[in-house]
């Protein structure tokens, strides 16, 4: 194990890794605060407000993936593939379920 004094190379990578968490933290904080503010103070008309906080949520998820989980274009191809494929499956399952159940509700209730 290297002693407390890091090698030159590690000082640079440390700075980059540390920055990643800090930027991610600040962005996540801002996106969260913005979303709560929009709802608690009833900014924007109803429908637009829901769209806005949905976009903020998606943005924050991307921030988490990029800055906390370090998933980026430099990632191993297998890992990227898996995230993208999972997103497809989630879209099909969640979208399909909501479509079906709302269609049923409309026709039956």
């Amino acid at each position: 194990m290297k002693g407390d004094a890091m090698t030159h190379k590690h000082v640079e990578t440390y700075a980059r890794d540390f920055r990643s968490y800090c930027i991610g933290g600040v962005l996540a904080l801002a996106l969260t605060a913005l979303a709560f503010w929009l709802v608690m103070f009833e900014i924007l008309p109803d429908f637009e407000r829901l769209i806005a906080i949905s976009i903020l949520a998606v943005a924050q998820i991307i921030v988490h993936f990029r800055f906390f989980l370090h998933i980026s274009w430099y990632s191993h191809r297998d890992d990227l593939q898996l995230v993208l494929f999972t997103s497809l499956i989630l879209f099909l399952m969640v979208g399909g379920t909501i479509w079906i159940l709302f269609n049923l509700h409309e026709r039956m209730m």
Binding site: W99, I100, N103, L104, E106, R107, M108
Partner: peptide
Amino acid sequence: TMGQGANV
């Protein structure tokens, strides 16, 4: 046959 619309 569960009751969805024809389009679904």
